[in-house]
Every structure is written in structure tokens, then in C-alpha cells.
Design a binder for these strands. Structure first.
Lengths: 151, 151
DNA sequence: ACACAAGGGTTCCCTCAGGGAACGGAGTGC
DNA sequence: GCACTCCGTTCCCTGAGGGAACCCTTGTGT
């Protein structure tokens, strides 16, 4: 039997997991986000198996999250850069960072801080409502069936 | 050799993945969030192997994300409920939903919609800056070394 | 009294994916 | 010609996921 396929479920969480749910994928995305765009760099930074890294990169490119771009003709060298789709996924990473900082950082505090360009302050992300702009948490919501609901 | 341990890395993303990064864990969390709190319910809803579900629940309880609560003495019956730590993790799910709705929903549209209690409107989460309140995306940030930085 | 069902797991076996290391190939520098 | 770098691919081994069967406790129908 195959491992379960998340991509075909009628659930946006499952479909998002289909793209970045495999082990290492979010960390690869993080590396590309912070500027480690080459195979060798990512492999050494994460200590990931070369085999798995090659698989993940191929899948992330196939899903339109990363783009494989040639940055040198001779010798042929490639780097991986974020697409628009991939850049928006990084917002998800920021939310993971926020939760990890709050609940797993321990005594030492967060390993990395984030300075917001708009205000110049060290801050973190907070989920807000796209309509009224007020804070919006999982407890503030009612779920309503949507158009793409499964039969 | 062991699989790589994410929990010991000096990275809040990796440490968050250590808690909900395993296959199925986010979907289990979603089920508990929407009110499917019993082993049998979750197993049938997800189609997950009973073995894996038992492992995941044990780990989520061990990490303080879920709590195993007895809701019937005779016969002994248990349900899984979100802790504060787990409830905050659900905010992460909402961000996954948002990305999945935007990039993977296709023609049919989102399978589920969310109504915000505060304003009563159907909306979605948007990351904002905790300091200035303006929208905050991955491209609007500078990274600064924090106190818990690795040596 | 007895069979049967339900909830909540545990155990067993099989396959497949991750880890590690070795190999390869295109190009460049000496 | 030889070493070196970047970017993978191939090999084998182990361990994790899938599926089905089994187990234990209590409740229920007859």
C-alpha cells in the first residue's frame, strides 16, 4: 500500500501539508528564505542526507514553491529561489517561529529576532482578521461549509 | 542510525516541527479543534492507521498540546482536548488554511469558510505586526541574532 | 446467562522512505 | 594530468507507516 496522499483531501490543511508537510521541507524553505540558496549550502547547514535534499528540492520546484535558476553558465551552477507562492509560505514559517519562541525557546530566549521594516521595531506576527483588522484566533471563529466542500 | 531530531536545533521552526511536524499530527489537531475528540472518531475521519494514531496522540499529550481526559467512568472512556498550548497551535492551522485556500483550492473554492466572532464576517487570517499593527510579511523583515542563538 | 457490540487501544508483518557513504560528471585552476 | 568544487545519483541498511487481527473492559439485547 501507498502512504496516504494528503493532496487529494478536501481540506486546505491537508493540501498545504502535501506541499510542505514532508520532513525537512519547512527547514529547506527557511534556508532559502534566509539566503542559503545552493544545494551544498543547504545540505551542510541542515545536515540532511543529500538524497533526501535532492528529492525535496525537486518536489518543491514541481509544486511551484521554489524555482531552479542558473546563476552561472560555465560551469553550470544552479540556485533555488522563492516564487511568489513560496514567499507566501514563509508567512507560515513566521507563525511557526512565533509559537516555537513562546513555547519551546526556554531560558535562553529566541534564537533569532525579527525587525519589521514598516516600524523598525523588533516584533512578531499576530493573526488578524482580514475584514475588521482585529486580532483573530482559532477560538474566535465559527466554521461554515464552503463552496469546495466534499460530498 | 536515528532519524534526525529537530527538537534540539537552535531554531524555533525546527522545534515547532518537533511537536507537530510528524505526518498526520496537524490533521489530528484539526480534528480535535473542530470537535472530533475521540480515538474512534479521529481514526475514521482521517483513515489513519490505529497504530500511528495511538503514537501521535501519545506524543501530542506528552508535549502538552492535548490533554487526555476521562469523560466516562463506567465504562472508562477518554477524549482528547486542546490545552492552551494546543489552542495557540491552531492559529498555525488557520494560516495553513489560508495558504491552501489561495494556492491549492482550485475551481471549487475553499472547502470551509470561517466567520469571525468579533465582526460577524467571513474572513481569513492575515499576519500583522505585534508592535505597529500593520500587515507583516516575510519580505518585510530583517533578521537579527537573538539571545538564544547557537554558538 | 450468554452472545454480541463498542471504545480504545496493542501486536504482527510487510513495504517503503530516510540516513550515510560512495560514486559520478561537468567544469576550472595549476 | 591531477586535484578540487558543485550538484547530484546510486547503493545498502534500518526504522517508520499501513493494514489487519487481536485484546480487554463494560454495556445491551434476548
Amino acid at each position: 500500500m501507498q502512504r496516504t496522499q494528503f493532496g487529494t483531501m478536501a481540506c486546505s490543511i491537508a493540501r498545504t501539508l502535501d506541499v510542505i508537510g514532508e520532513p525537512w521541507s519547512p527547514l529547506i524553505l527557511r534556508d532559502v528564505y534566509v539566503g542559503m540558496t545552493r544545494f551544498e549550502q543547504i545540505q551542510q547547514d541542515l545536515g540532511i542526507s543529500r538524497k533526501v535534499l535532492a528529492e525535496r528540492l525537486k518536489r518543491l520546484v514541481g509544486n511551484g514553491v521554489l524555482e531552479r535558476r542558473e546563476y552561472s553558465d560555465r560551469p553550470p551552477r544552479h540556485e533555488y529561489v522563492l516564487t511568489a507562492k513560496g514567499t507566501e509560505l514563509c508567512d507560515l514559517l513566521l507563525v511557526m517561529v512565533r509559537w516555537g519562541d513562546r513555547w519551546t525557546a526556554g531560558e535562553a530566549g529566541p534564537p533569532v529576532l525579527y525587525r519589521h521594516h514598516a516600524c523598525g521595531e523588533i516584533s512578531h506576527v499576530e493573526p488578524h482578521c482580514s475584514v475588521c483588522g482585529e486580532p483573530m484566533h482559532a477560538t474566535d471563529l465559527d466554521l461554515v461549509p464552503g463552496p469546495g466542500q466534499a460530498v
